[in-house]
Design a protein around this nucleic acid. Structure first.
Length: 227
DNA sequence: TGGCCTTTGAAGTAT
DNA sequence: ATACTTCAAAGGCCA
């Protein structure tokens, strides 16, 4: 199965219209618990009969990224009724421009990496592990989720691979030109420092974006490559 | 308060 | 082409 997402579809997913008027106003409120359940990947994309994607005019994948707190702070136009100036800001093609009302600086580092398939799986299943288990520490929970991930069937995993693929496409649409390299150097690798005797790690030698040639990122556009 | 731990996958970088 | 490194999330823990 191959599915190419065109610009129109991605704009629909993001809630952005072709004329850049931004997401429809009624979709700016934070999702309720029931709505989050509706968007659950493990539900197989099936929606309650009273709440369909068509009825809400929102693509089931939109909350994964657009309504994610990673991308949409409370102060963002996505979480508030949209206004004309805000709509114009949303319309700006570059994520390097001011994004949110009251946020004078919309730095590149505010944009985080899109979640991969396993991260999406963890985000959804974490609370379940918390409820059923004795573990509280994230590291222990993540070990459990890693085992659960491997126990999933190929078709079950493919749902998350597809979601991750669409997250990347939507991310690319929202932040054209963004690179994961922009967030490099935010953490330090103690292990590397120990191994290299205190010398900077390989990545640390290239942390300054100003000294690097700009590279264009190429996002895969074929959905279902893992199936 | 900030970094570590722990997982997988994507992407960037080095060789 | 291959191997290595970093970062995404999460929250308890520790220096």
């Amino acid at each position: 199965m191959e599915q190419i997402l065109n610009t129109e579809e991605m704009l629909f997913m993001s809630g952005l219209s072709e004329n850049g008027s931004g997401p429809s106003c009624e979709k700016h409120q934070p999702l309720q618990e029931s709505e989050l359940q509706y968007y659950s990947p493990t539900s197989g994309g099936q929606s309650p009969s009273s709440l369909t994607a068509a009825a809400t005019s929102v693509h089931p994948l939109v909350p994964l990224l657009l309504y994610s707190d990673r991308h949409i702070p409370l102060s963002s136009p996505y979480s508030q009724p949209i206004s004309e100036p805000v709509a114009r800001q949303v319309d700006t093609p570059s994520w390097t421009r001011p994004c949110y009302p009251g946020n004078s600086v919309c730095s590149r580092q505010a944009v985080k990496k899109p979640l991969n398939a396993f991260m999406l799986y963890m985000k959804e299943m974490r609370h379940q592990v918390l409820q059923e288990g004795r573990e509280k520490e994230s590291s222990a929970i993540n070990r459990i989720l890693g085992r659960k991930w491997h126990a999933l069937s190929r078709s079950e995993q493919s749902k998350y691979y597809d979601l991750a693929q669409k997250e990347r496409l939507l991310h690319m649409q929202l932040y054209p030109g963004w690179s994961a390299r922009d967030n490099y150097g935010k953490r330090k690798r103690k292990q590397n420092q120990q191994q290299l005797g205190g010398s900077p790690s390989r990545s640390e030698t290239v942390q300054n974006p100003e000294t690097l040639p700009s590279t264009s990122i190429v996002y895969p556009v074929v959905v279902g490559q893992y199936q």
